[in-house]
């Protein structure tokens, strides 16, 4: 069956993924700090909203809304206008749970209610959760967080939402807390190699269920328009 794809508008990425990310599914983008994860997720969201009429919700666990607006302004995108036009909805989560000692059983229903509320405000079709790691740092017992993440990805997919989740790269694992185990559809990894003094940024399609692709790596750069991949257009995937 043709796997429905959600175009990202990121030059080269739609080519090497054969049209974009798996629609109605969750894509995990992992990378070290400064690897371009947030920028890539913003481009995905803004493109969906401004070019495809798919409003998007950005849940930020780290950057404050005003930083995001500046971040995207450098790409020539007026995020504040998109927010005013209900094309984008920003929610900054201050996960100030700071190692709280739970006093009994709990869950993260607050996150689900906030997400549902934000999605309903603009009829969102896309969601970004930028850097889920913070949830793990905030809460001592990660079994609750892991269970809630599994529930969250199912919850998003049940609503046909195309979601992008970013996570910090782990030293030996793809992500620090092994979130990749819960994302079975699409995993992208951003990293920077320093060889012979030249640092090259690369994007690797680590996993893409239902679509044949070599786990190829593609160099990319970050310029005034954001992330752009050097996809050799002859590199066809089918």
């Amino acid at each position: 069956p043709g796997l429905r794809k959600a175009a990202t508008g990121i030059p080269g990425l739609d080519e090497i993924t054969g049209g974009g990310l798996p629609a109605g599914r969750t894509t995990l983008v992992c990378g070290t700090a400064g690897s371009g994860k947030t920028l890539l997720s913003l481009q995905f969201l803004v493109y969906g909203a401004s070019a495809l009429g798919e409003p998007g919700v950005f849940i930020s666990f780290e950057e404050r809304p005003e930083d995001l607006v500046v971040n995207v302004a450098s790409l020539g995108v007026d995020l504040a206008a998109l927010v005013a036009e209900h094309q984008i909805y920003l929610d900054h989560v201050e996960a100030g749970l700071d190692q709280m000692e739970p006093t009994g059983s709990y869950d993260l229903e607050g996150l689900f209610v906030r997400l549902g509320y934000a999605i309903d405000q603009i009829g969102a079709k896309r969601v970004v959760l930028d850097t889920l790691e913070v949830l793990f740092q905030g809460l001592r017992d990660s079994t609750v967080v892991r269970g809630e993440l599994r529930r969250l990805f199912r919850w998003l997919s049940d609503r046909g939402i195309t979601a992008m989740v970013t996570a910090e790269a782990g030293a030996t694992t793809l992500t620090r807390y092994g979130i990749e185990e819960y994302v079975s559809d699409c995993v992208l990894s951003l990293h920077q190699d320093l060889d012979s003094g030249i640092s090259t940024r690369r994007l690797r399609v680590v996993k893409y269920r239902g679509s044949q692709h070599g786990s190829n790596e593609c160099p990319f750069l970050i310029d005034a328009n954001g992330v752009a991949l050097f996809a050799i257009t002859s590199l066809s995937l089918d």
Binding site: D91, V93, E94, A95, G96, L97, M100, P102, Y106, D107, L108, E109, G110, L111, V113, R114, Y117, A118, L135, G138, L139
Partner: peptide, 9 residues
């Protein structure tokens, strides 16, 4: 939930 920054319930 958003105004009061509620995550855990």
């Amino acid at each position: 939930a958003q105004r009061d920054q509620i995550l855990a319930i």
